[in-house]
Design a protein around this nucleic acid. Structure first.
Lengths: 145, 145
DNA sequence: ATCTTTGCAAAATGTTTGCATTGGT
DNA sequence: ACCAATGCAAACATTTTGCAAAGAT
């Protein structure tokens, strides 16, 4: 899948002076395999299911480190829990649809949206804009019945 | 300021079967006076400063009720604390610039952005899209130095 | 050998809930 | 009088931190 991203992430971590470690590696591999934003709890649970038990603190610490190096994107969709997903070095990214009923999160892409936000980001002078998030709230087909 | 919104909110609450109450009224008035999204803690603090002491639980309960009636919009900008702001009945709204350093939040508007999101919302069939949030992360002029 | 990473448990933070009391109708 | 709104404290959920043990270089 995005095994290239794994290499990329490990390289950046090494550059930044981090040593290797099993827990962090496991989190990185899981993130690379996942399709969309996961919560810390989901990561911990899925690792335990797969037999690779990782301490909760290590999950959070790893996510914090990856976020600081812009290797993952942190996303807040409003359920009180942060979600994280791989940030590709190409800068390519998507945004999210969130079902406010069941919490389901799905990605979507739109080039025009990106262009519009780019334009706004340049226009704004009071802020030096970096990342951006667009979240569309609603009901997924399943919940809408 | 948006004293019309206060009327509007009170009317909707009455319709929904709520009785009146001093704590809720105080929160509503503060929200109407505020310019941009406030956290529950900020609301509680500002009410205490103004001499109107309101229990924390009442702040949260009021915000929850207002959100359920779409009288306020809940916003998550990533610092682990939710923010709330008045939702005008006209549907008019703005989005937010967030300083990831100091937590400062500022509003911005862009008609083209709204139009683009409208189009996407209609295009998406797997979800019934309602609200949306756009958050531009970055550094404010003060923090960027 | 040294210094990081890890895991556990405890603390900190933000939010919700239970319950007795106050207050609106 | 009735029942909802309020405030307090306790419960709860998520995230962060302190520290000893294991692991990487």
């Amino acid at each position: 899948m995005s095994s290239e991203w794994i290499e990329h992430a490990e390289a950046r971590l090494a550059e930044a002076g981090y040593r290797r470690g099993g827990a962090r590696r496991a989190v990185i591999e899981l993130l690379a395999a996942g399709h969309c934003a996961m919560t810390a709890a989901e990561i911990e649970e899925r690792l335990r299911e797969s037999g690779r038990r990782v301490g909760r603190a290590s999950v959070y610490r790893t996510l914090e480190q990856l976020d600081a190096l812009n290797l993952v994107t942190r996303l807040d969709v409003g359920q009180g829990t942060a979600r994280y997903e791989v940030a590709l070095p190409s800068g390519d990214h998507h945004h999210h649809l969130v079902c406010d009923r069941c919490g389901r999160v799905e990605p979507f892409e739109d080039p025009e949206l990106e262009a519009t936000i780019e334009r706004i980001s340049r226009r704004v002078t009071a802020f030096h804009v970096g990342e951006h998030d667009v979240v569309l709230h609603g009901e997924c087909a399943r919940c809408a019945g």
